[in-house]
């Protein structure tokens, strides 16, 4: 599929899903309020942890806020793209409507990953960026070209890892039909990403670095912000992201061979 066609189709996806969402104004308003309250609640929770400790896992409150900022951006991306699309895969497979996707002359992964959009997630992304800019000021971080490039690379990698994990789990629906619980577990692990990795025990750190790479998703970008990250960690994150993206793609194409479509 060429880039021109992808952009043209994506423009249509944006248009139709925004139009669909705007049909329900109250729902959008509730979502926006939820996003604001959720961020306030998270910062409040974090401040409670720091009430009696100046450091948690070697991080100060102001530094830990960076993780919260990155988490908020990722959660916004999750709510804008992953949640409306990737949870639909389960529905598509259970109800057999994946048939329509597979019979279109368009990449099926592109179609099911990007068809819908939830505009209220945009506010969360914006709030996350506001929080990050605030953190840059209070932590007196110097903004340079290399800082911006590395931050961008690590955040893009985090999105890539999160997407691949979610897509991988959703793909297993082709065999197991129902995988809601696995996705909920993944989302719960993502909540853990709001806290510095060093605040967990050694075994949990290994688990969140190797099996469910939450460490890569929030901690490494935060370390980049604070100038604490070593280059090998960033390189490792890029490699892990590439492996995850390629594997999830191959797994999807492999799984489609077993798609039996729902009975009519």
């Amino acid at each position: 599929m060429n880039l021109r066609k992808s952009l043209k189709v994506y423009k249509k996806f944006l248009h139709t899903s925004l139009a669909s969402e705007l049909e329900y104004k109250t729902n959008i308003l509730v979502d926006l309020i939820t996003a604001i309250l959720s961020l306030i609640g998270s910062i409040f929770l974090l401040s409670i942890f720091f009430q009696n400790n100046d450091y948690i896992g070697g991080w100060e409150f102001e530094q830990a806020l960076i993780i919260q900022g990155i988490y908020t951006i990722l959660n916004g991306i999750t709510n804008t793209w992953f949640n409306p699309n990737l949870t639909e895969i389960v529905k598509h497979i259970r109800e057999g409507t994946l048939d329509f996707v597979l019979l279109k002359p368009i990449d099926s992964q592109f179609f099911i990953s990007l068809k819908k959009i939830n505009p209220s997630g945009f506010l969360e992304i914006m709030l996350g960026f506001f929080l990050l800019f605030f953190c840059i000021r209070i932590n007196q971080i110097n903004i340079s070209l290399s800082f911006l490039t590395l931050s961008l690379i690590t955040i893009i990698c985090s999105i890539g890892i999160l997407y691949s994990l979610w897509f991988f789990i959703s793909t297993t629906t082709i065999w197991f039909v129902k995988t809601w619980n696995a996705i909920e577990v993944l989302r719960s692990f993502l909540y853990i990403g709001r806290f510095p990795l060093n605040s967990f025990s050694f075994s949990l750190r290994i688990f969140f670095s190797v099996f469910i790479p939450i460490a890569f998703i929030t901690t490494i970008p935060s370390e980049v912000f604070l100038g604490l990250s070593q280059s090998w960690k960033i390189l490792l994150e890029v490699i892990v992201t590439t492996v995850f993206l390629v594997t999830s793609r191959k797994f999807w194409l492999f799984a489609l061979k077993f798609y039996s479509s729902a009975s009519s």
Binding site: T16, A19, S20, S264
Partner: peptide
């Protein structure tokens, strides 16, 4: 028994 049209539009 299956539909591809966008329900709300």
């Amino acid at each position: 028994q299956k539909q591809q049209l966008i329900w709300d539009l």
